[in-house]
Structures are given as C-alpha cells and as structure tokens.
Design a protein around this nucleic acid. Structure first.
Lengths: 358, 358
DNA sequence: CGACAGTAGCAAAACGTTAGCAGAAAACAA
DNA sequence: TTGTTTTCTGCTAACGTTTTGCTACTGTCG
C-alpha cells in the first residue's frame, strides 16, 4: 500500500496525496477530505524510509551510553528520549559497555542509518575518530563525559569541583585517612574526580598515599573487590570516596561483609546521586547532579546544531550539589525503628523534579 | 559521497561497487581490491536508507517498554539489545509510561519507520489495535506482559504460580494477615499476581479481606502511600506481598518511616528480583525471574518470525524461583556488623549470569 | 578452429516519497 | 469580452541503493 495506490483509488496524482499528507496549501478542501478519508479507510501509513531518502533527513538521533542498565545512564537516556520526542524526533539507544570497539561499531551503524545527530555519553578523554566526525560538521554533543580538549558541544557536571567539595566535607568531619576508589582515568569523570581528590589532599598539606587509591570501572562489583583491598591497609582509612554511587554501593557491601559499621567505623561518599542512593537502606551521602536534566539539555544543544541555528561551540557545565544522607554520620545509615528515615515528601519531590509529568 | 562517486572515481559501474560492497562473486580480485581501497580512502559509508528502501527491510526492530528507568525494563532492554545486535539488527527503544496514548503514538512512528518487527513490553491485557497488527502478520512478540487471549508470540513468567508460591512461603512462616499491594489489573502481571494472592488465601480457607488489598502502578512512590494506608488497618497485617520489587522498596520505606522493624514487625516480599533487590541494605525476599534472558528469548522468537522460519504461534512461559533473603526473617534485613550479609560470590555469580561477557 | 562454459562488467529499472515546473481552471478587474 | 492573477492539480526528476538481463571477454576442450 503506497501513496500511488491511494492516488489511483482517489483518481488524483501522487503529488496531490503527498500534499494532503504534508498539509500543504493549494489543495481543494473537498479533495483533501476525500483523500484523507481514503487514507484512513485503508489505514495507509506513508513510508518513512522513502521520505528520509528524498529529504536527506531521518528525524532520528543516535544515543550511545556505556550501559543502559546503569541507573545513571537510564535516567540520562530517559531525559534524552523525552526531549527528543518533544522535538518530533526518535532516538536509537546503544550500550557500549565502555568497549571502544563496540562504540565504534555502533557509531558506524548509526552513521550508515543516517541519523541526523549523535549524543555520546560514553566517550574517553581522547577519541580521535569521534572528534574528527564532529570537526567535519556532524551534529554531535557529548554528555556526562567530555574530551580532553573539548572542541565539541557538551553538557557535563563540574566533576573536579564536586570532588573537592566532597573531600572538604570529609575533612571537615575530621577524616584524614581518606581512600579513593577511582574510575578509569581515560574517562573525564574518572580523571577529574581523581584530580579533585588528589588536589584536595595536597591543599590540606596531606600527601596523597598511592596505596589509598584503587581503581574500578565504575561498577559495583569492582568496588567490592577494591574495598577489600583497602581494608587490609594499615593504618586503615577512615573514609572512602567512591568514584560514583554504584561503586559506593559496592563499598557498603564489602564493609558490611567485613563487619564494619557505617558510618561509625567507616564513612562512605559517592557521586551522581542516582535515585537509589536515596532509598531506604542505602541513604548515601553523595554529590548530586541533575541527571535527567542533563539529557534534556544535550538534546537542546543538538537540535540547535541540526537546525543550524548555531555554529560556534557551546559547553554547558553544571554545578553538582552536596546531599548529605546517612553514610558519613549525622543520620545512621541503616533503617529500621524510626531512626534515620528521611521525611517521605523529599522523595516524592525528587521523583517529580526528575521527571516532570509528561 | 555516494556509490556513484566511488564508481566514477574507479572507472567502473555502480553495479560493480555494489557487488564489492555486498561481497558478491563475479568481480575480479584486482578490481575488488582497487574499489575497496578507494572506499576506505574516502571513508565512504553506503546509505542505509536507500538500501532499506529497495530491500524493503530496515534491519531494525522496535522495542516499547513502560519505563527504561525502571531497573526491570532496563535489564530486559539490555537483553534485547545484545541479542538483536548478535543478529545484526538495531533496536529502537521507547518508554510509554504505561500511557496507552503514548504507546499508540510510538507504534505509529515505528511502523512509519518500517521496523522489521516489534517487541512490546508494556501492553495491557486487552489491546485491540495491537492484536490486529499481529493478526495481519506483522512480526511481533510480547514480553513480560501478555494479552488476555494470547494469539500472539510472547515470553512471560508464570505470575500466577509465582504469586501462589510466595503466599505459601508467607503462610508457612505463620502469617495469616497478609496484605497485597497489587499492580493495575489491566496488566497481566498485576492481574495474575493478584489472582494468585486471592486464590492462595481461599485455598487456605482464609477469606480475602478487600481492605488488605491496595493498588499502585508498579511504582515505588505508590507503594509508600499504599503501605501507609495498610498500617492504619486493625488488625494490622503481619506481611505485605508487593506486586513488584519497586513497590516492595516503597513498602520498606513507609515501614521504616512508621518505626516498624523488618522482618520482626512486618514481613515484605516483592516480585521480579531486579538486581538491586539483592543489594546490601535491601536484601529483599522475592520471586526471581531471568529478566535479561527474557529479553534474549523475545528476540529469538521475533527473528523466527521475521525470517519466516515459523508461522504458528509460540508462547514461552518461564517458571520463577523463590529467593529468600532478609525481608521475611531468616537473615535480618539491615546490614552492618557482620549480620545478614550474603557471601559476595553470590553477587558476582549473579552478575555474570545475568550478563554473559560480551 | 569453433562451440561453449564461465567470468566480468555495464545499463537500466525498480523502491516510495518530495518538490519544482507547468498547465488548467476559476476568480477577479478593466 | 479580454487580460491578469490566484488557486488548484499533474508530470516528472530526483534521492542512493540493489538486482536483472545483457554483452563482451576469457580460456578449454573436442
């Protein structure tokens, strides 16, 4: 069933059908009605592939993230999806598991499918192929992570400042032996947070002890292993700054396993403030970023590019915000019997704030 | 840059270039090498849109779920993505927030984009438009939720049996006053689990008290409100069967807020076994389903349809499995000081099991 | 040496739209 | 009535591929 069939059934030309389909002027109301009725009657849907071919536009954007299963990325993806939809576009989502090879494969596929633009949430600090693509004028924006020398549009949070703020907080609580489970240094998130950690110590006149820094791939399981290693150290650290919330959860797991109480025996902070950081039973102190919002902003930036309303580069750097829950003292972290429960309203507000009713 | 440009640069016809692109025979090795070199040199990528138009095949499948932010769906989506990729296809993912209108919109868009097939994870029990589509021979499989009269391929878990098993467990622990926070009855998941709850009580000669059944939309926040209502009841229930894990988390939150201890004052069970149900600080007893695997199976079913290897309907019904953690007794639920921590290996195994290394 | 496979390569016709140009009809003004 | 807009509609050439039929070469063998 094509536009041609509709045309012959109505005794008009394909041009006319195309015009009623696209609500163009200069078609007689009566004729328009007749064609529309026929279209509905046979349930005709124009072929978007053919349309894309002639328009050189797919109204589709590619989104690549590290792992959609990661609550951080699923929230970003949701922000992107909603805003993309608002612009009348569709998004196709890909998870790379941080594998450069897989990222390249997906990029190729998306390019071959002729997406109108790209939102990348999983780039490394150095990524020549990708940078070249942007340089060639392909519409693209980085989100969450950015390049070392960012000549590309991006929306990120100030990870360095966030890390320093977090460290200030821990030091302010009296901690001196602070360990860091850092993310991979190839990623700007891992790199900047680590720099913030290191510089904070130095600024306090504390020499960073390399044994107190262990690495993980931003995954919960990695932090479990890393934390076990940290616990063997003497003197034992009194606080752990995890590179993200997921790793903070892994740290909590390992600490519980070792029989340590939180926060009495060990303080833990994360980074990101994914929704589950606020759940009962977890109550993680962390640096909060507007994750959903970042996704939306990335789309807005991208659309400006796609519609050629802007040529110069633009980078949005958001400031994260410290949210204090139970994992460093103040409120005890474990729930039960009325202690340490945040008033519920806070959660409801958060939920609404993250996801405006759509 | 098109196939035509490559052709003229190499002094051959477009047909030849097309043949080297598609690794067809009957092209001289020397020529093939020359063309391939040129293709690489100028970085040519064939236009997938044009190809799709002539092939009448996009190698793309549409996936619609309720909410990608929901860990259950993000895990299913991940299973789908991985398996779809293994088949050389791409998936485009849409979140409907369980809004029928939005689902229909997305369906229209996907159809217009000429996806080769559809995986739907958010259907209601009755969905005439969708059923009609499948009836017309469009390749489609339902996952997680199914239709009332399923004439469509699907992969679901046996929710009824799961609910009964869960109730048996609670009754076995001595509970008689068991409340249920059920999901919407329009969804087979909500409906079947509720039936399981009700029939279990009846089978025990207990008459289901309607006050003990409250509803929510499978969201955590809903369960917080619902649980508050349950706590006002006299006699107060001693156990809560939440319609899914997210709602179980909401129940835990409300119970903590009310100063109740878990599981001493109230037992809680969920359904699904999303990854975070096993986290430290949560340790939810729940019915486990192989979520990631369901996504993969759905893709396999769909591919059989797309490649016309099967005409008759096929429904895969998986059996869920009870996993006992801390929320009903046995192990205490709150972490800290060596109590109630599951050996770590369990978690690592789970992670591997869910997501085979890719 | 001629017939015959088999191999290489080309030209052109799809695929289902959009859009520019042009013609016809209708409306309006003189 | 005629000339001039204005409004409507049709024809046709793209868009960038794949595929089919055809021709023109090679060798090979009887």
């Amino acid at each position: 069933m094509t536009i041609k069939d509709i045309a012959s059934r109505c005794g008009v030309s394909v041009a006319t059908v195309s015009r009623v389909l696209n609500r163009f002027p200069h078609v007689h109301p009566a004729l328009r009605a007749r064609v529309e009725r026929e279209i509905r009657r046979v349930g005709f849907r124009p072929n978007g592939v053919a349309r894309s071919l002639v328009l050189k536009k797919t109204r589709t954007i590619g989104v690549v993230v590290a792992d959609i299963t990661n609550p951080f990325y699923s929230e970003i993806a949701r922000g992107i999806e909603d805003q993309v939809r608002a612009h009348g576009y569709t998004s196709v989502l890909c998870s790379t598991d941080n594998l450069p090879k897989r990222q390249l494969e997906y990029l190729q596929t998306l390019l071959e499918k002729r997406v109108d633009g790209l939102i990348l949430g999983s780039v490394r600090r150095r990524e020549p192929e990708v940078a070249a693509l942007a340089h060639n004028g392909f519409a693209m924006v980085l989100v969450n992570r950015s390049f070392r020398s960012p000549h590309v549009d991006s929306v990120v949070v100030d990870n360095y400042a966030g890390a320093r703020r977090l460290m200030e907080y821990l030091v302010g609580l009296g901690h001196r032996l602070i360990a860091h489970i850092r993310g991979p240094l190839q990623f700007s998130t891992g790199y900047d947070r680590y720099r913030g950690y290191r510089d904070s110590l130095r600024a306090r006149g504390l020499t960073p002890d390399p044994r107190y820094v262990v690495s993980g791939a931003f995954r919960r399981e990695d932090a479990v292993v890393a934390t076990r290693r940290l616990l063997e150290l003497r003197p034992r650290p009194t606080a752990i700054f995890a590179g993200n919330d997921l790793m903070a959860l892994g740290a909590l797991e390992a600490l519980a396993e070792a029989g340590l109480r939180i926060p009495a025996d060990m303080a833990v902070v994360g980074f990101d403030d994914v929704e589950l950081a606020s759940y009962w039973g977890i109550r993680l102190t962390t640096m909060s970023q507007r994750i959903y919002e970042m996704g939306r902003l990335a789309v807005d930036l991208l659309m400006e590019r796609i519609e050629k309303r802007r040529r110069e580069r633009r980078a949005i750097i958001l400031q994260p915000e410290l949210v204090i829950r139970g994992s460093c003292g103040g409120q005890p972290i474990s729930g039960g019997l009325g202690q340490g429960s945040l008033p519920l309203e806070t959660h409801l507000d958060r939920a609404q704030l993250r996801r405006p009713q759509g």
